[in-house]
Design a protein around this nucleic acid. Structure first.
Length: 880
RNA sequence: GCCCGGGUGGUGAAAUUGGUAAACACAGCGGACUUAAAAUCCGCCGGCGCAAGCCUUGCCGGUUCGAGUCCGGUCCUGGGCACCA
């Protein structure tokens, strides 16, 4: 894999240097420790009765080919927690598996002609080897891959249960369509409105799809966020905003068309502004818009135009706001006024009723739309001190807290809540509307027009319609020898897959060829780890034992979708009696992304081609900022896109293998942990690895010196030992505090400080009571981060058999006691010196001591201080 | 555009509740050891200033005896926006 490494090792074998046993040899140490764990089955999790369980789960990887630094970071963090809790006496389960279905396998197939199944299983084999070399405390007997029929059978089974309960249903959905490749594109495959391979402008297309009714659980998904104190606030906020509960009024504008009376329904959170409505806007897909286009060619063309471009919300939100009148109008439900109806590209068919009332005076988007189309602007809310101008938008116009209704007839003078109530009551009396809760959350569309995924277990019969595959026929197995070519789903071309008999009537029928969103696979894998061998059911009693996951660790990029879908799926499983918990993850650690530079170039067809950072040469400006780059392969410029998360598709991942080969797993793990707080983003750079390696070399050397000292002779403790011991326990106390708040980088720093402390202390028989204690604390504190070297030194030093089962070190309060403490002395808030006082000095004597000090005397110059602030144990501030 | 984060020396970072800004490292510089290099060890290392001292946590303003930390505004940057996973 790595040429430098191959040369190095062949060099070694030729010269066969004498092994210096005193030298830190990570490869030997790590292989020995891993062999030991392997043969003793150390990390096999049994359902223990005598210890509290701790289910520690890291998000499983997509088998993209090689591990990247994000994986190393994720799994090291998880492993640190798993090993820490084991030492604290828990029965730990830490499993590993593969999120094995997905798009990259199909892209690889297109590029290399290898079937996605082969590619995926090869990747898994290589990445498993890499993970094992990192020495994670994983129970490998529970390994699973979502592309195995024994796993995805239960996706299908649960889907059918949901279908029975109406939780799964079929309706039309909008997708990105590449007209050249005749295929559906993922959002990722749409670059600036064009297909990534063909460069053709993407169209929207409506196709039938299966949906899961996650909105039925919206209320519970929102409310239960309050029952997750172990989740980061920011993730809960993001989920709450995503679910988006809003209170408002759904009401109708009546109209007559084609000799019939009808109603145009809208939803608004600002019913208090209803008297300011000057037009209505429809989504392009709205039936009324389509009716209007029937005899209006220019409107029809506009609607057609709206159907081009991507379906992504970010694109919709940033595109130019365009609209066109339908020529139709409706009646204001309260005033009977005639209201013109427009079609606007910013109205979403998928939210609410696909139509909105427009109040330009109090909604920014409506305001700009009205101005560019010369539509009237009618202010109906007045805020003290904010004069209204229809020339320039001001954010205050949309403020609902401080305004009162004006120009609104009987509603004049009412504040927001009263006005909404009054308007809703009047609309209700007319039978034209009511108060209503609206959710931003939409049902989960799971159909994918792709090959490498879990088949949706449906058979389409010309007579019986859509028929679920009977349970006895599950799983519907995906043929593994297909090679996608980019033009549609290869499953549809497989006669042996498609043709089948209808389970109901036995006549010839066609199998559904859409597969499931891969988020389905990852929505319940944590439950299957409890019983991966189970053939008779989805889960059994072992899932009750292990669930919920005590600690889940994964990238912040999953803060919404994956975590929300998993929460939903757990609630469905609970309602089906499969599990008893309502939430799958008790504590959540959202690891920051590992970022790297991204370089790309437009290819001949208009698509995007990415370059790995080690394939380009950089140009910098005077400040060292990257200004450009050229590809080393052809010397031509490439575009620098800035930094972004490491991903296969952007080719900016860094393979940790070279690091592991050169320094060993412990160094890689230590460095990853030391680099930054687990939750913070980390811009990749390998400078600093040397420091981590040096530390382990020094630790090894110290450990060996310690082993060589004769066995313990009891000696009296000196005052130097006492103060070193105070320092040691101070460091340990802080490290344990940092462990609790998962700030592992400072735990690693504490380990370095402990070694510095030991190296500065005499290392003799006499000091051995202290150095023994200190080394045993240091090894245990460090062992979750660098398990191999600590395992070996622990054994050599004779501290015990197996450090993985040694008790977690706790600080000794009595060691922390000191006679004197140092206080910071401030004058007017500025640092002016320090004071040594007795540890039990009272406020008055500290104050006296501060006032007597040189700096205080100088600044006070005989005057009395205005104020003296004493912060116990920290500082004194004299305000002159 | 909307939602959620982040911004501290040349670099990665630390500073628990508002209380010594820069712990611990990396890089750099100087030295010891060495024929030499590597490795190892020792010292220096935010800026200005001869010094006393002054300045410094993206930027502007506020609260406070005291602000990296709290409040308002602003700029830059990362993540998500429902088909990347």
């Amino acid at each position: 894999m790595n040429p430098a490494k191959t040369m190095e090792s062949s060099d070694h074998s030729q010269h066969a240097p004498r092994r210096d046993s005193a030298k830190y040899d990570p490869i030997r140490i790590e292989q020995a420790a891993q062999r030991h764990w392997d043969t003793s089955g150390t990390f096999r999790a049994r359902e223990a009765k005598d210890r509290p369980k701790y289910y520690c789960l890291s998000m499983f990887p997509y088998p993209s080919g090689k591990l990247h630094m994000g994986h190393v970071r994720n799994y090291t963090i998880g492993d640190v927690l798993a090993r820490h809790y084991r030492m604290k006496g828990h029965d730990v389960l830490q499993p590993m598996g593969w999120d094995a279905f997905g798009l990259p396998a199909e892209n690889a197939a297109m590029a290399n002609g290898v079937p996605p199944a082969r590619w995926t299983y090869d990747n898994i084999a290589y990445m498993r080897k890499q993970l094992k070399a990192l020495g994670f405390a994983i129970d490998w007997e529970r390994e699973l891959a979502t592309c195995e029929p024994t796993y995805y059978k239960w996706n299908q089974w649960l889907f059918l249960r949901m279908l029975e309960r109406g939780l799964a249903y079929k309706k039309s959905g909008t997708v990105n369509w590449d007209p050249v490749d005749q295929t559906v594109l993922a959002n990722e495959q749409v670059i600036e409105g064009r297909g990534w391979r063909t460069g053709a402008p993407v169209e929207k297309r409506d196709i039938p799809m299966y949906y899961l009714a996650i909105t039925r659980y919206a209320e519970e998904l929102l409310a239960d966020l309050d029952k997750l104190p172990g989740w980061p606030e920011r993730v809960k906020t993001m989920q709450a905003n995503w679910i988006g509960k809003s209170f408002g009024v759904r009401f109708a504008f009546p109209y007559e068309l084609d000799g019939q009376s009808d109603r145009l329904w809208v939803f608004t959170t600002r019913a208090d502004t209803i008297m300011g409505v000057t037009f209505c806007a429809l989504a392009a897909e709205h039936p009324l818009a389509e009716r209007a286009a029937r005899d209006n060619p220019s409107l029809s063309a506009f609607i057609e135009e709206c159907k081009h471009g991507s379906v992504m919300e970010a694109d919709l939100a940033t595109m130019e706001k365009k609209g066109m009148p339908t020529g139709f109008s409706v009646r204001h439900p309260l005033t009977g006024e005639t209201i013109p109806v427009w079609v606007a590209n910013y109205v979403l068919m998928s939210y609410g009723d696909g139509a909105v009332m427009a109040v330009p005076a109090h909604d920014e988007r409506d305001f700009h739309f009205a101005r560019s189309h010369q539509l009237p602007i009618k202010p109906v809310i007045a805020i003290d001190g904010v004069p209204f101008s229809d020339q320039v938008w001001q954010d205050e116009y949309a403020d609902k807290l401080h305004g009162r209704c004006v120009n609104s007839g009987k509603y004049d003078g009412l504040a927001f809540a009263e006005a909404v109530d009054a308007v809703a009551k009047d609309l209700e009396a007319l039978g034209l509307g009511e108060k209503r809760v609206q959710w931003r959350l939409r049902d989960w569309g799971i159909s994918r027009q792709r090959y490498w995924g879990c088949p949706i277990p449906i058979i389409h019969c010309p007579k019986c319609g859509d028929v679920p595959v009977p349970e006895k026929d599950l799983p519907v197995v995906l043929p593994e020898d297909c090679v996608p070519d980019g033009s549609g789903n290869p499953l549809a071309k497989r006669a042996d897959f498609v043709h089948c008999a209808c389970p109901k009537c036995g006549q010839a029928a066609r199998r559904e060829t859409d597969t499931m969103d891969t988020f389905v696979d990852s929505s319940w894998y944590y439950a299957r780890y409890a019983c991966p061998d189970l053939a008779a059911a989805m889960v059994d009693w072992r899932a009750q034992h292990w669930l919920p996951v005590d600690q889940y660790i994964g990238g912040i990029e999953h803060a919404i979708l994956h975590l929300l879908y998993s929460r939903f799926w757990t609630k469905v499983m609970r309602d089906l009696g499969l599990v008893t918990c309502s939430e799958p993850f008790t504590r959540l650690l959202t690891q920051g992304m590992v970022l790297n530079h991204i370089f790309s170039r437009r290819n001949a067809r208009g698509g995007n081609e990415y370059f790995s950072p080690d394939e380009v040469d950089l140009t910098h400006d005077a400040h060292g900022k990257i200004t450009g780059a050229v590809a080393r392969s052809d010397g031509r410029p490439v575009l620098y896109e800035g930094v972004g998360t490491m991903s296969k598709s952007k080719r900016n991942g860094v393979d940790p293998q070279a690091l592991i080969d050169r320094y060993g797993a412990d160094t890689a793990r230590f460095f990853m942990i030391f680099a930054s707080h687990p939750e913070q983003t980390l811009e990749w750079s390998d400078s600093g690895v040397d420091g981590a390696h040096r530390f382990l070399k020094r630790l090894w050397a110290y450990g060996l010196r310690h082993v060589e000292l004769a066995t313990l002779a009891v000696a009296p403790e000196t005052s130097a030992d006492r103060s070193a011991r105070r320092e040691l326990h101070k460091l340990l106390k802080q490290a344990n505090y940092d462990f609790e708040r998962v700030q592992f980088n400072t735990v690693a720093a504490a380990c370095m400080k402990m070694l510095n402390l030991l190296e500065e202390h005499p290392h003799t028989l006499e000091t051995r009571p202290f150095t023994d204690e200190a080394l045993s604390i240091l090894l245990r504190l460090l062992s979750p981060i660098c398990p191999h070297v600590c395992h070996e030194l622990w054994r050599l030093a004779g501290f015990g058999e197996d450090i993985v089962d040694a008790p977690w070190p706790l600080h000794d309060d009595s060691a922390l006691l000191a006679d004197e403490i140092e206080l910071v002395l401030q004058i007017n808030g500025k640092l002016r010196g320090s004071l040594r006082v007795s540890a039990n000095a009272d406020r008055a004597s500290i104050e006296a001591c501060a006032l007597a000090s040189d700096p205080a005397q100088r600044h006070l110059a005989g005057r009395a201080p205005k104020k003296v602030i004493v912060v116990p144990g920290r500082l004194v501030n004299v305000v002159a």
